[in-house]
Design a protein around this nucleic acid. Structure first.
Length: 1064
RNA sequence: GCCGAAGUGGCGGAACUGGCAGACGCGCACGACUCAAAAUCGUGUUCCGCAAGGAGUGUGGGUUCGAUUCCCACCUUCGGCACCA
């Protein structure tokens, strides 16, 4: 009788041995090809790990072990992202120093990792909260502080280079360069002015330092930030979800504080472009691109013009005033002249209104405007359809352009917008609100006046904080225009060429319907309200539309009209056709319709009128690219070139220029809390000074009290010994942990170097990370930050690679096994959490079934990326497999089943096929099928045993292969069996078995026989059989004969090695 | 609303490039061993049907000799983004 498999006895023994022998220590650099496999930097919490955490640690460990056996020099390290709020909050609650908690928690994590038999190189263990680590976090901060992004080199450069340039020639050339290369907008602070060399040289050192803050990659600026009132800390944009702080769940407040940032915006374009070079899950790449939010378009300058008639306008009557100016009396064909007349009239700017503020949002172009508003648009091809302009309530020009009549309303609105919380502002389906400023802007493409509104759906933080509204082709503008009765003029053709027309009862003569039938035009006859039966016509394509217009003109009755909306936009009267191609036409059409049919008299625009008919709703608005219409000389420009051509033309006219905008903002890094890396800056007489690198680390002092202060100051501010420095006052903010985790993967290459951040040769050998594995929740936080630091360090010559993580994989979540039912009766599984008391720990699973069973089940549970509930009965299933392996290896003679058919040749084939399957599966991260392959292989061994093969050379080979393949999955059991079968320590240092292609090859193949695609029989033929032979055998098979009968096969198709399909 | 992923037995899930749907495991049933039970070994297990056979991969269409796989429309679930002009 063989020994029983007792993992509780085997596992600790081997773990101790491996640790003593440093079996998993990485080899020296350069001796072999390397493979760097890394888990996401864990945050050690007081709760320890659950089986959900092991979901990535086990597979990465399997991969690490597999690559070691494959002959690679593997780097598989572990460390702790120890700074941060959870530990600090726990420290406050437990009244225990966070340093002590850190050591306690991370030691517990290490204990759990070792319990699972994970093969980390523990000699490289790091911890962000240790000063030998954060010293280098501070060092990187200083490198960024001492650098700026030179747009001409497209890389980071020493700030001293910039200072030299400023002293010699000022910054105009830099701004001009950015102007010509708008991808680079993020290299300098928004709103920073260009200065001359004289201005620079005339500045005090303090003023110069303040100016340099516009350029530094680590900089301090006063901005409105997200303040978390619960944790009493500032949080980054990336940490706010739906207006709530990511960690605490508290509603964030707006607060204006001086904060430290990293200028990630300078890298926006490279961060987006280099995503093409990485092997990452598509969704993560997408999320990063969305976050960076690059959009290309144009900046267009609109002069603010006066409207004589509007000066007298009364509040509430704005609309009518505007319409009067708009030329309501114009006749068809006359609008062009009217527009010209108006242009001259409105070209006199409001000269007595002078802006006290320099232009807010053209930091780069430094346009010196008397009074103009610059808008950003991605659709310059829609400029002719801009029927109004909207400014953000915070736009600095609002008060300058608002007329006295509108001032009160505008100011009230601004106060309202200010008071709104983010949650209110973002409330779903929020009704759009806004007020008219009384001012008009001149559309530079046609000289027409358009009203300027203020509305909170325009954000100050994006673009220029002002938009031209093109309601026909922008959903938001469309909703706003409908609500406030602003005109909507289509200027882009519908690419689908669909138009609709509703023929009112009694509007056409009796022959019309027959004419439609004859022309083969689709329509539905159905009641129109309660006024009788109408025709609901849908037209597809220009030809149909033209024919329809012709018919309609012939059949429309006097004092009636019919409209075509969608692809054509025209109104057919019995004396002519009017296109909805301008504000004047809008007015003219509406007036005529009102005169004909009084129920529409309440409508303010033509669009509002047609919008009342639900039949039309789906063709009124579209945001697609299409040929330009109603756009003077540009009419007919195809959709694919329209934006480009208009932008070029605008530039020639001096009315606009190409622009790029990014959604991504500067990365807010400072936190007003104790438990973080101190920012190595001193506030001296001349402004912010870098701490001398020789003085690093700036150590976190021990304090008695970690409570955050309600004023928003760090607890460090209350420690004079820390704050006071010969050169001034120390910065008391600390860095968010995102800084710590933005470079830890580099430190592993040389974890304990005290001289430099890391040895350049070691970093060149080990980095970048070949395989990076963790949860998808860090898609835009850590993964974006780490990429930026990598690129900055690359620019500065510190590292030789531009992307830190070559391949990335996300593991799925593990949920609690208990099924719950919600109010609607739907079943679901909860996440594991301490508060719900449903955590299953690896410790308890290991105590019962051993680490190898836990490991096997973590792999086997599901597809690696799938979210899945834990199953308590799954672990025993895997354990049963381990026991089967144990028994078949050690006691092949016990518990034999009935005699079976299994040849030695077959055993070899299965063994070698399993090697191939296993390799393919591991490389595809298909851990579940890799385990399944091992289970099948084990089952085959049982069959082979029952066929009497135990003891044969083929048997020995098969067992040997099984142990090698099992070693990465169940390292303890494999090691024990390796020893018990008389081999020398350690199986983990054995080379991985090579698959023998000849042995893996099948001798016979089973071919499916289908008749008309349905399986009717199977035939077994030699693998070498030819196509003709196989077809003959298939046709002769019983199943085929039965279903083919006497019929003559039309076709016999053979799919090599698979099937024969007989078609009759 | 937009973007992305996914819907396959009682359950977790397999199925390489369009080619035998349901591998492997859990559960269940039956048998062997046992005085008995557990463990173990073996057999069976998509549904309907005694069977021959038929149906079947969220729903409805399409392409194809052949579709879980490709195309179109829709439904559901999960994740992300959310007035970004």
């Amino acid at each position: 009788m063989a020994d029983k498999y007792i993992p509780q006895e085997i596992e600790p023994r081997w773990q101790a041995r491996w640790e003593k022998d440093e079996l998993y220590k990485s080899g020296a650099e350069g001796e072999k090809p390397k493979y760097y496999i890394l888990d996401f930097y864990p945050y050690p919490s007081g709760e320890g790990m659950s089986v959900g955490h092991a979901r990535n640690y086990v597979p990465t460990d399997v991969i690490a072990r597999y690559y070691r056996m494959k002959g690679y020099n593997v780097l598989h390290p572990m460390g702790f992202d120890a700074f941060g709020l959870p530990t600090e909050n726990a420290a406050i609650k437990l009244k225990t120093n966070p340093h002590i908690l850190n050591e306690r928690y991370s030691a517990n994590y290490v204990r759990q990792y070792k319990l699972m038999g994970l093969s980390y190189d523990w000699s490289r263990l790091i911890n962000s909260a240790h000063d030998d680590y954060y010293r280098w976090t501070q060092w990187i901060f200083l490198q960024l502080f001492k650098s700026w992004y030179d747009p001409r080199l497209d890389k980071a450069a020493p700030i001293t280079d910039l200072e030299r340039e400023l002293a010699q020639s000022g910054s105009q050339a830099i701004f001009d360069y950015i102007d010509a290369h708008p991808e680079q907008v993020g290299v300098v602070a928004k709103g920073a002015p260009a200065i001359s060399a004289q201005q620079w040289n005339a500045m005090s050192r303090r003023e110069q330092n303040a100016y340099l803050m516009n350029f530094r990659l680590a900089f301090r600026a006063e901005t409105q930030v997200n303040w978390d009132p619960e944790d009493k800390v500032v949080v980054a944009d990336e940490e706010v979800e739906n207006g709530r702080a990511w960690r605490s769940g508290a509603l964030v407040e707006k607060k204006v504080i001086r904060q430290w940032f990293f200028r990630i915006t300078a890298y926006a374009d490279r961060l987006a472009n280099d995503l093409d070079t990485v092997d990452w899950p598509e969704r993560i790449v997408k999320m990063q691109r969305n976050w960076i939010g690059k959009s290309e378009g144009a900046e267009v300058k609109f002069e603010i013009g006066s409207q004589k008639s509007e000066v007298r306008s009364q509040k509430g009557e704005i609309r009518d005033q505007r319409l009067e100016i708009g030329g309501q009396k114009s006749e068809v064909g006359n609008q062009r002249q009217e527009a010209r007349g108006k242009r001259q009239e409105s070209q006199s700017p409001i000269s007595n209104l002078q802006s006290p503020i320099s232009h807010p949002e053209s930091p780069i172009s430094n346009l010196q405007s008397q009074l103009s508003v610059t808008v950003f648009t991605t659709r310059p091809d829609t400029l002719w359809g801009a029927t109004f302009m909207v400014l953000s309530p915070e736009h600095p020009l609002v008060s300058a352009i608002t007329t006295p009549e509108q001032r009160e309303a505008v100011e009230q609105y601004q106060a309202f917008a200010r008071g709104e919380t983010d949650e209110q502002r973002m409330a779903e389906q929020k009704e759009k609100t806004g007020v008219f400023t009384g001012a008009y802007a001149i559309n530079p493409v046609n000289g027409r006046s358009i009203p300027v509104w203020v509305a909170d759906y325009v954000l100050m933080s994006y673009g220029t904080g002002a938009i031209m509204a093109v309601p026909a082709h922008d959903e938001r503008d469309f909703a706003f225009a409908l609500k406030y009765g602003l005109p909507i003029i289509p200027v882009i053709d519908r690419p689908d060429r669909v138009a609709k027309s509703l023929v009112f009862p009694g509007s056409v003569d009796a022959g019309f319907r027959a004419a439609l039938d004859a022309a083969k035009i689709e329509y539905d006859a159905a009641p129109v309200g309660s006024i009788g039966e109408g025709l609901y016509v849908t037209l597809r394509g220009d030809e149909q539309i033209d024919r329809y217009i012709e018919l309609m003109r012939a059949h429309i009755l006097p004092n009636n009209w019919n409209e075509i909306v969608g692809a054509r936009w025209c109104f057919i009267f019995n004396d002519g056709v009017q296109e909805l191609d301008s504000v004047e036409a809008d007015r003219a059409i509406l007036n005529r319709c009102k005169a004909i049919y009084s129920p529409v008299s309440g409508n303010r625009t033509t669009m509002e009128m047609v919008n009342n008919l639900p039949f039309y709703r789906d063709v009124l608005f579209h945001a697609e690219y299409g040929a330009m219409i109603h756009s003077e000389g540009f009419t007919g420009t195809p959709g694919d070139v329209a934006r480009h051509r208009v932008t070029e033309w605008l530039a020639q006219q001096g009315a606009g220029k190409r622009r790029v905008n990014y959604k991504i903002r500067a990365w807010l890094i400072s936190r007003q809390r104790y438990w973080g890396t101190p920012i190595p800056i001193i506030h001296g007489a001349d402004g912010e000074l870098a701490v001398n690198e020789r003085e690093l680390p700036v150590r976190l002092p021990d304090v008695a009290n970690y409570e955050p202060t309600a004023t928003g100051e760090s607890p460090l501010a209350g420690i004079p010994e820390f704050v006071n420095h010969p050169q001034g006052r120390r910065e008391t903010d600390t860095m968010a942990t995102w800084a710590c985790s933005s470079w830890y993967f580099m430190r592993f290459a040389d974890a304990h170097n005290d001289e430099v951040i890391f040895d350049p040769q070691k970093i060149a050998y080990w980095l970048p990370v070949d395989m990076y594995v963790g949860g998808a929740e860090h898609a835009v936080l850590h993964l974006l930050y780490a990429r930026m630091w990598t690129k900055a360090l690359f620019d500065l010559g510190v590292v030789p690679f531009i992307e830190p993580f070559k391949s990335l994989r996300n593991q799925g979540l593990i949920l609690s096994p208990q099924k719950k039912t919600d109010e609607k009766g739907r079943e679901y599984f909860e996440k594991m959490s301490k508060s719900k008391g449903n955590i299953i720990t690896p410790d308890e699973v290991i105590a019962e079934h051993g680490a190898d069973a836990l490991r096997g089940y973590e792999m086997f549970i599901s597809d690696f990326a799938q979210t899945v509930p834990w199953s308590t009965s799954g672990v025993p299933g895997v354990r049963r497999w381990l026991e089967r392996v144990w028994r078949i290896v050690l006691a092949a003679d016990e518990d034999r089943g009935p005699a079976a058919e299994f040849s030695a040749r077959e055993l070899r084939r299965v063994a070698h096929q399993t090697i191939l399957r296993y390799e393919r599966d591991l490389e595809n991260f298909s851990f579940n099928t890799a385990v399944a392959a091992l289970m099948e292989f084990t089952n085959s061994l049982y069959k082979a045993r029952d066929a009497g093969l135990a003891g044969s050379p083929e048997w020995a080979e098969a067992v040997n292969i099984l142990l090698h393949l099992a070693a990465p999955v169940a390292p303890h059991m494999a090691e024990e069996l390796w020893e018990k079968t008389g081999h020398a320590y350690s199986i983990h240092q054995q080379p991985f078995p090579k698959a023998d292609a000849a042995a893996a090859k099948e001798d016979e193949i089973t071919i499916a026989v289908q008749v008309n695609g349905k399986l009717r029989d199977r035939i077994v033929v030699p693998a070498s059989a030819g196509e003709e032979h196989i077809k003959q055998v298939a046709l002769a098979s019983e199943g085929a004969r039965r279903f083919v009968g006497s019929a003559q096969p039309k076709m016999v198709r053979y799919v090599p090695g698979r099937l024969v399909n007989i078609v009759v």
